[in-house]
Design a protein around this nucleic acid. Structure first.
Lengths: 212, 212
DNA sequence: GTAAGCTTTTACCAAGCGGTTAAATTATCG
DNA sequence: CGATAATTTAACCGCTTGGTAAAAGCTTAC
């Protein structure tokens, strides 16, 4: 008996691997719907179909679970921006960035909402990541866009606000899903709204950024 | 003693008027930052500088406070859309709608975040309002936009997604303020970012919607 | 002024919270 | 198999939570 917690022995067992994944999956459900303070360990434990103490055997605290989730999401969430290529064709790079972000909103809405919840509540747990890695990545890509803009390949515009507008329009379909559904009604209860959105956004950004 | 609570006597006293306003103001601070479940009555009471039981004398429950706030916000929040005029010039109507929404994001960020929090968490307390009054208003304005679109006054586009994109791009500056600040850095710590955003969004939407 | 009603405070409660302890159970490996 | 380590459970703890009871203090209309 007297277990100094699995983590001590650097080796992770098969069960650890599985259970931690199970917990993170459950926690994503719960945190993305209720935010950090609004979620309870009991809720997560129930969603993961295990007892609270058992869950706390794998993650010391509620914060530890949230922390790991956020770190993971932040990485995958920025992937589309990372592949933004300076040597590519501006129009198609922007077009495919929009498409990719919209696909993520469709396929990973919980991740989007987890992130949105965090930012909305002042990002107390990820301020550093925002001011560090995120800002650096955006600065880098903003430079790329500015170059295109100055070379006359796209319209002159503020690259930061261009990025913000792509983020907001696409993530809207994940974060405000309930509202979007309510407004559109039964008509687009399937994934049709994503196709319509893709068409609209492509048109908006392509025509809005075309050199004139 | 034995107070059947002020509300019973339909008349509202001066003190009731003042204190209820004070509480709602404090609650807006707290709810907009922490969401419903993440906020406590004690927090609100402290922000309103009164004791918890005293606060509960004016509002029976935490939900009652939240309810009233949401109702209020929903009304004022949709005001800019309401004034959207079918007989006006399409370009300037859309332009001024964007400007107004952006001003609201700048001047009433708490209201925006309160609303965002609610939607993000599945809008359990306002589903009816969304499917009723909100949907009706949007349907009506979407019709206006569609008419303009068909008359060749603006580009052909899905009016619903146009409205969504205006909502999301403008509210982004309230709801994701922390992220916007983190990315822009010290450079635009004042209100400069709103002016830049206004310039960018006007260009994006005006050029994006121009008939070609 | 005073009586009635309105407002505030003090003291309290049951339920829910994040987290711990220690013992019981199960998996792993020689 | 048997021992050792990993996992799960039951019982519990102190604190916070939303909300109540009742009495004390204050306003207001007559």
């Amino acid at each position: 008996m007297a277990i100094p917690r699995a983590a001590k022995t650097q080796r992770r067992t098969r069960i650890q691997e599985e259970k931690e994944e199970l917990i993170l999956e459950a926690a994503l459900d719960v945190f993305s719907q209720n935010g950090f303070r609004g979620s309870t360990i009991d809720q997560i434990a129930e969603a993961a179909r295990m007892s609270k103490p058992n869950l706390l055997y794998y993650f010391r605290t509620k914060e530890a679970i949230h922390r790991q989730l956020i770190d993971r999401v932040l990485t995958t969430w920025l992937e589309p921006l990372r592949v933004f290529d300076a040597t590519g064709d501006p129009e198609s790079e922007i077009r495919s960035y929009i498409r990719r972000k919209l696909e993520m909103a469709r396929d990973f809405p919980r991740e989007s909402r987890l992130f949105a919840n965090e930012i909305l509540q002042g990002a107390p747990r990820i301020e550093e990541e925002l001011k560090g890695p995120l800002k650096e990545l955006v600065d880098e890509k903003a430079d790329v866009i500015r170059t295109w803009s100055r070379a006359g390949k796209i319209a002159r515009c503020d690259p930061y606000h261009l990025i913000f507008s792509i983020w907001s329009t696409t993530q809207h379909y994940a974060d405000f899903d309930v509202q979007v559904r309510a407004v559109l009604g039964q008509a687009h209860s399937g994934d049709g709204r994503f196709e319509d959105a893709a068409r609209f956004l492509e048109q908006l950004f392509m025509d809005g950024l075309r050199v004139r």
